[in-house]
Design a protein around this nucleic acid. Structure first.
Lengths: 317, 317
DNA sequence: GTGAAAGCGCTAACAG
DNA sequence: CTGTTAGCGCTTTCAC
């Protein structure tokens, strides 16, 4: 490449990064040669020496519709920058996926990994900039972007209670995702559920269903709730995907509310009451924070998105 | 790393790739040092010299449920190999996304890019192994994995016709995706639709609706079909996502059939008749073909998955 | 303003 | 069986 343009490699490198110290004439010459040759710099080589200009987004469930929102926002935030987003689907323990992203593939990581150990994350964040989604912890070396799970869950419960429901069940993820005090979104939503029930003097009516550990759907869990001696009249599902499963199991016999306000919730045939926690904005914030870290920021930042309850017919009386 | 174990870098490299010429003692020593240091080889450096052990899956719409199936199959196929899958979401023209994957990030590419030029692809395939999904072309340098769009579309049409429908509309993608003879899945489905209508003596009833070019939904297009002077009694949608949009627009007043048999189609509240084209198997085949190319295969292979019509209540009379 | 040269962390010949 | 060595393609001082 350098020879083709009759200049040094250094010159080419400078033009590529439009750094100082290139005369207009040289820049011109290099650029036209790049054009002619269809030359593209090797990401591997760049990464070895500097940056790969790749941003890794680790996602636990590709089919979780909430992820679509996150990606959309992140894309929007990096538009116009030289950075690109690559997705790393995690299967099972996210440690491996995160490690392998950190192995020099990307300049920074956005991850949805509520279960990984904070100390381990701090360690990772020392090697590569990290922004975590949906962690209510207080990190030293990475940033967090979360929704306001307290407010969101409370809004759902107040809505259901105001409709007169007394037997309200909560449909959530397996136990390992909802350990009290762990700060995962689903642990918070569960805690709020319990608290609201207690405040309403309905502690005796607390019922918690959980979806299969095997990553299966929540249809069975919802059906099990309905089969109780005193079945719930309303189900607060931890997120829309489970809510949709619940609808599949219980039909319109029970009020169902979800979380995330995914596009499916707005579908007329589903028409699910849900909590909008601004997933797109969260994705955009996460990417922006990463870009800030690339530019030198080191002190941690935390962003919490506001929530809004979208009431639809799934909770109509 | 090498010094820490008191051996040469070459030895470490060999252990890593478990190549020949390492004594058990040395392997032992190296491995335990790797363990102690938590050492992880740099992907960038490996890629520069050999392989990155990363497989790129380019997908046009992350939210297309069909992609979930592809990814699932691909994951299954690489399980147990040293390869990992990374996803590259394409926005707009796939050329850029594919190029940037080929820039040394991955050892091979699986892509869903019906619109890119074949000659251009052949060119790309000379630089890096490529498997294309959903292209009915006859390539020289890359492999293809497709569904049997002829059989699948015909099955839908025969089903609808056998139910007595005469005014059957087709809901498909924008024109640029369905250019006759282009070999895209949607162009084939459209052609089969026309052919089946003609064969049934219903050429006069052909109605084609298209979803918004802007990547929007197909709700409006479906509503427009229904607003025709002689509205269709059945809609054959090019894929499930559009079929679900159609259901949103027309409710249960019109028979609706989709394509791909995504998990949403099986949902009781949707319960959509659809064509199962074995997306998981297609993904697995694609990944397997790529692995074969890594091992030296160069002659092109083409795989076509069989289809099966799943009849559900959305086309009940 | 420009080019020469060192080196990122690894792999693949080759020599020992 | 083991270690030395020469790059992979780029970025980055540092002379010129």
């Amino acid at each position: 490449m350098a020879e083709a343009a009759g200049v040094s490699r250094a010159a080419v490198s400078k033009v590529l990064r439009n750094a100082y110290g290139v005369s207009p004439g040289m820049r011109q010459r290099v650029e036209s040669t790049i054009e002619q040759l269809g030359y593209r710099p090797s990401v591997a080589a760049r990464a070895l020496r500097g940056s790969s200009y790749r941003l890794g987004l680790e996602i636990p469930h590709i089919d979780a519709r909430f992820m679509t929102q996150i990606l959309k926002g992140a894309k929007r935030a990096v538009a116009g920058t030289p950075y690109q987003i690559i997705l790393a689907p995690a299967d099972g323990p996210e440690y491996d996926t995160l490690e392998s992203l950190a192995d020099g593939l990307v300049d920074g990581i956005i991850a949805v990994s509520p279960l990984v150990d904070q100390a381990w994350l701090e360690d990772l964040a020392r090697r590569v900039p990290v922004v975590m989604l949906g962690r209510h912890d207080t990190p030293a070396g990475y940033d967090t972007v979360t929704g306001d799970d307290h407010a969101g869950a409370r809004a759902v419960m107040e809505h259901l209670l105001s409709l007169g429901h007394r037997r309200i069940a909560h449909l959530t993820e397996p136990e390992n995702v909802t350990i009290p005090g762990s700060g995962t979104p689903h642990s918070v939503r569960l805690e709020v559920y319990r608290a609201c029930m207690a405040e309403a003097g309905l502690s005796g009516n607390i019922q918690v269903g959980r979806r299969d550990v095997s990553g299966g759907d929540a249809v069975g869990a919802a059906a099990a709730l309905l089969a109780l001696p005193e079945p719930p009249t309303a189900i607060f599902a931890g997120h829309d995907d489970m809510a949709v499963d619940a609808l599949a199991a219980v039909g319109r016999t029970v009020a169902v509310a979800g979380y995330d306000d995914t596009d499916l919730a707005a579908h007329p045939l589903i028409d699910l009451t849900s909590v909008d926690q601004q997933g797109v904005e969260m994705g955009a914030q996460a990417a922006t924070m990463l870009l800030e870290r690339f530019q030198g920021r080191t002190e941690p930042r935390r962003y919490m998105a506001a929530t809004r309850l979208r009431i639809r017919s799934s909770t109509a009386s």
